[in-house]
Design a protein around this nucleic acid. Sequence first.
DNA 1: TGTACTTTAGGAACGTGTTCCGGAACATGT
DNA 2: ACATGTTCCGGAACACGTTCCTAAAGTACA
Lengths: 234, 234
Amino acid sequence: MPGQRDRRQPAPTPTGRTGRPRSTSRAEILAAARRVIDEDGWETLTVRRLAAEIGVGTTTLYHHVHNKDDLVVELVNQHLDQLARPELPDDPRERIVVAATTMHDALTNWPWAAEALTADGFIGRLGDSALWIVETIVAGAVDAGCTQGQAVDVFRSIWYYTVGEVLVRARSDRRRAQVGSADTAFGLHRLDPSRQPQLAAIGDLWPERSALDLYPQVLRIIVDGLLAEAARPA
Amino acid sequence: MPGQRDRRQPAPTPTGRTGRPRSTSRAEILAAARRVIDEDGWETLTVRRLAAEIGVGTTTLYHHVHNKDDLVVELVNQHLDQLARPELPDDPRERIVVAATTMHDALTNWPWAAEALTADGFIGRLGDSALWIVETIVAGAVDAGCTQGQAVDVFRSIWYYTVGEVLVRARSDRRRAQVGSADTAFGLHRLDPSRQPQLAAIGDLWPERSALDLYPQVLRIIVDGLLAEAARPA
DNA sequence: TGTACTTTAGGAACGTGTTCCGGAACATGT
DNA sequence: ACATGTTCCGGAACACGTTCCTAAAGTACA
């Protein structure tokens, strides 16, 4: 039974508040969650396990956290908090690239961050710590000559691409880990060369090519294209 | 109790096979699933409900389907099956755009298809019906002058963007449906104009701009950029 | 007819996230 | 001292996806 401790509030600090004093704080829950993840991996982070870690009833957590998604989003926010703010170049286009790449790397390097991306309305729940990224991208787009509307479009496009990249790769990584190395992308039903000649010809090139990380390159292409498009007269 | 019927195999057709004859087929399960979705919405598609619809034990389904993800992926495959094969233009670049847009629209118009996208290794489990899209994109890229490796990159990039677009928009749609119209993307914690001046200035423009569907335009930008990049000498 | 073998069916049970609701634990008023 | 109001805790219970294991329902051969 790890992590059991006294749950009574030691100091009867007169908070000027009525009602039963809380024996658990949101912060304590988040800290415990981080502990569980660090020690035993994020797959083991279950609501009951977390409650046990704190030494508290399971359903108590729901008085401090809306649901598990909420918790995970908050954890990702904390993670983004501790991100080192990179040096931002002068060129607005490069600023966009740097900001987007920073967020991408942060999400990629934290495998279970992908879990948060599928949470409803993730961007809307980003904390201040991550907002500088959004701000930097939007401001960069405006600096590069976009209207405000176009700047929003730029961010959305980048965001879509980033989310897709992170999610798909996280998922196929997990799959690879389970199945073993038997991943040829189309490994299950073999390809019919008469109907999918190109795919059949490519064959084993696919998985090895898929291992490449070309996020930065493609991101640059997208940013360049979007900014060029915005600069064009209607 | 809807959907209950006789489960005995009426014809003792000598199948030359030994063992207990199956009273349920994979096809029957998929058909019932479609029925449930069409009638009561895909949120109500649960394993128990589905089994009840067929009039069969819950766990029986697991002898015909690996898991629910498997089922959903199969349903999406069926949906893509019934897709009208669009007229493919001669220009390889346009072929790519048409193919990608076709898949994008199919996924977008079927809200719960997004659920399948998060399934592990979705692309690898695509059926023949959807493979023509992959083949068309890859072949188009090769026709446009890409190497096979670059063609894979082109598809992957398009796929990432498409998945991200579909997922994020599906999720924010769902959120909008729940919360009501109180979605200003950053509606929860109000923006600090001193720290996020651009975002604060944009304000209400964000949600209205987010409602726009600019998949085709951005897709063209991505495709153009990728093909141009590939055509460049190293 | 009966025994062995083979394949499918499905109930019991587990672990998950989550909701409901009764009661515990405090401050305040009488 | 006691009642009242208020806030928080947490066990019971639910629906979910899923696994395990035993029984059912056949065929094949004696």
